[in-house]
């Protein structure tokens, strides 16, 4: 696979390390009364979508950016690549 890095252009996916669903960006509030349940859900339960999937990749053999890819898990087609810190920044 080839990932079009927003800063570096097309790079082989072998340069990257995969983490998982981009929902891992949304770490729950540890002070909330429901924190135990929230963290359990956050860390363990997945939509595991068959189709368009937002997911985290790390450019380990590169510039060490964490990226959010929008990739189809049925076809592997990548339609969007963003810097994770931009996505995380928008979310908060």
């Amino acid at each position: 696979m080839i990932i079009h890095h927003p800063l570096l252009g097309p790079r082989d996916a072998a340069e990257f390390v995969y983490l998982g669903d981009a929902s891992l960006l949304n770490r729950p509030d540890p002070a909330a009364p429901s924190a135990a349940e929230d963290f359990y859900t956050y860390l363990h339960l997945r939509d595991n979508t068959a189709g368009e999937h937002r997911e985290l990749w790390y450019h380990e053999q590169g510039d060490r950016s964490w990226l959010v890819l929008t990739r189809n898990t049925l076809t592997h087609e990548i339609t969007r690549v963003e810097l994770a810190r931009d996505v995380a920044g928008q979310a908060s």
Binding site: D21, L45, R46, D47
Partner: peptide
């Protein structure tokens, strides 16, 4: 995950 989603469940599973 696809099948259990029909029962409204999210699983601790990735494919």
């Amino acid at each position: 995950s696809r099948v259990m989603a029909m029962a409204g469940m999210r699983l601790p599973i990735e494919s």
